[in-house]
Design a protein around this nucleic acid. Structure first.
Lengths: 243, 243
DNA sequence: TGATCAAAGATCCTATGGGATTTTACGGTA
DNA sequence: TACCGTAAAATCCCATAGGATCTTTGATCA
């Protein structure tokens, strides 16, 4: 999700210090603003305006926008600037689920049994669980903070999936899947019934995790397939086929 | 491969005029220099140097490099600049073939039977054939122009694959596969036995095309699988497992 | 040899400005 | 009113210059 340094062959934590330059901070800031809908779909993004708002020059803004463009969150029209991409249509959501099945099932198939992955997956799942538990009993917060919570749900949820993807041992599959993350969240915020979905997802994740822990590849693939089917059904339940 | 304007839902030719800005030209120029090895692997890319060499300012160079970064052809180290990515190792080549199988077999499965695709595929195949025939009888040209020919072979070859990928009806699969193109060429130029491979590939493409023309999905998937197996075997024949 | 430190070089960013294009506002005509 | 052409404002895109910060190089010293 966030900017990564060039992924190392041996997938441990990067030994290089996280040298960050301003462009990466701008990228993260813009990503956050897009994820929380502070920059709403359809809105046009003035380079000069963003530069003033974030207190930086135009150069890092330009580079961050180029980088954002290939996530699909913004689109560029020559000589007209950048605009925030419109929400996903129902057809696009179906395509996204389909693409996730292609990539994530392949990732699961390659990831089961790789050393250390089961443990990382377990900790990602625990973190996911903790995030949901933390806000589970909250009364309705400010409408502004809802987007922030939704983003936190999403990050913990996607971290589980990303753990599998990045642990599959194929850097090209990993690289390709990095395109999906932002779109998955876009889809999620189109139908914000945050907590109920999270509970369902958590249950389905648990089954995936269990299959990984016993090293049962076929069962893991099946559990992931059922999970993505669940995501698809919950999406359809929200958006009637007419729209 | 090249820069596309935002792909329209109905996949016709874009009605918008091809407004190009300098950044896109710089991107194409750098891509060409990378593909033809005029910028060799390991070489460090000075933004200031490239700006002087291409006769433009630093701004479009920066944006083009950010865009190139996500193709995998160049990598960026914070505060140290960009460098041309090292050639693919044997392990990375195996991963690339594996990733291609995941994406391209899924694309074929979804593409067979879609209207108009069979015709576009046939014309792409004819073009591929024409390119090979054109240079088939050439005597050895200048060592400089060999890379140009190889690039032309590659473009015609990949155009066949891209026709299937872009015709599969899933824009996310399409978007993900766009990452692979440049890497496929990198792999190809690591083992430059250009023409013999092209002849084999052409034969295998013909079988894929035939399956598309009769609308036989299973046969098309099988033909693509055999083709990718062939690519893999030819790669292994060139690079012994020791290296 | 190995370590310390200063100078050179590069990267990254800022700031400013202008050419080119799009957008908007405005006035004229049917 | 609706449509069309023109002028002004806004914006994008790029050029240029320069400074802050980091990396690299190379020389000095123990």
């Amino acid at each position: 999700m966030s900017t990564r340094t060039a992924s190392l062959p041996s997938g441990g934590t990067a030994p290089t210090l996280a040298r960050k330059i301003l462009r990466d901070d701008v990228y993260d800031a813009l990503l956050e603003m897009l994820m929380t809908q502070r920059l709403a779909p359809g809105q046009s993004l003035s380079i000069d305006g963003l530069a003033r708002e974030l207190g930086v020059s135009q150069t890092p803004i330009r580079e961050a926008l180029v980088q954002l463009e290939h996530t699909g969150l913004v689109i560029r029209a020559a000589l007209k600037g950048y605009t925030v991409t419109a929400p996903l249509t129902a057809a696009q959501m179906a395509e996204l689920i389909d693409a996730r099945e292609v990539i994530e099932l392949a990732a699961v198939e390659r990831a089961v049994g790789r050393s250390g992955l089961s443990e990382r997956l377990e900790s990602a799942h625990a973190e996911h669980q903790a995030v949901i538990a933390r806000y589970g009993l909250d009364r309705q917060p400010s409408a502004d903070a809802v987007q922030g919570q939704l983003l936190e749900y999403f990050r913990a949820d996607w971290a589980f999936h990303e753990t599998i993807i990045r642990g599959c041992g194929n850097r090209f599959i990993d690289q390709m899947a990095s395109i999906l993350g932002a779109n998955v969240h876009r889809m999620r915020q189109s139908m914000d019934r945050g907590l109920t979905d999270s509970a369902d997802a958590l249950r389905e994740h648990a089954e995936i995790l269990a299959a990984f822990q016993v090293g049962n590849r076929a069962r893991a693939v099946g559990a992931m397939a059922r999970h993505l089917q669940g995501v698809s059904q919950r999406a359809q339940a929200e958006a009637p086929p007419g729209h």
